[in-house]
């Protein structure tokens, strides 16, 4: 563990914090100013991420901020685009239909499976506020 702690690049944490924070602030401004619903914001982010990923721009942000760029939903979009490009280079035309989900299979499956488990073990509660 000590070895791990000494290997950490704390500068990277700061960059992840700031870039991740900024991406959230942009969405917050959109929510408060335009009354866009959360679903629309998520769609906007994932599509933007996919486009920036497709154009090869988003990877610079990932190189710079690590999880600050991959954890926000734009990173999910970028991952879809990245996966599709890799797969197209490997298998050609069919790759366009395989690569996206293949690259993000872990996240999607986890959300569905944990969602199902959560619905088994828990139920919604009245909001206090």
């Amino acid at each position: 563990m000590g070895e791990f702690l000494s290997s950490i690049d704390y500068w990277m944490f700061l960059k992840a914090f700031i870039i991740g924070g900024i991406l959230c602030v942009i969405a917050q401004i959109l929510i408060d100013k335009t009354k866009l619903t959360p679903a629309r914001i998520l769609v906007l982010y994932v599509t933007t991420g996919a486009i920036l990923g497709g154009l090869g721009i988003y990877k610079y942000l990932v190189d710079f901020a690590g999880c600050g760029a991959t954890v926000p939903l734009t990173g999910f979009g970028n991952n879809l685009a990245k996966g599709v490009i890799e797969e197209v280079s490997k298998t050609g035309f069919l790759g366009a239909f395989i690569g996206g989900i293949k690259a993000s299979a872990g996240g999607i499956t986890a959300a569905i499976f944990f969602g199902y488990i959560a619905s088994l073990v828990s139920k919604p509660k009245m909001k206090k506020q």
């Binding site: 769609v43 994932v46 486009i51 685009a81 366009a96 989900i101």
Partner: peptide, 20 residues
Amino acid sequence: AGPVLVYGISASVIVGLVYL
């Protein structure tokens, strides 16, 4: 979350086709 998958995946297919 359905729309996120619909738009994300559709965008990725388009990216793939354009790249192709």
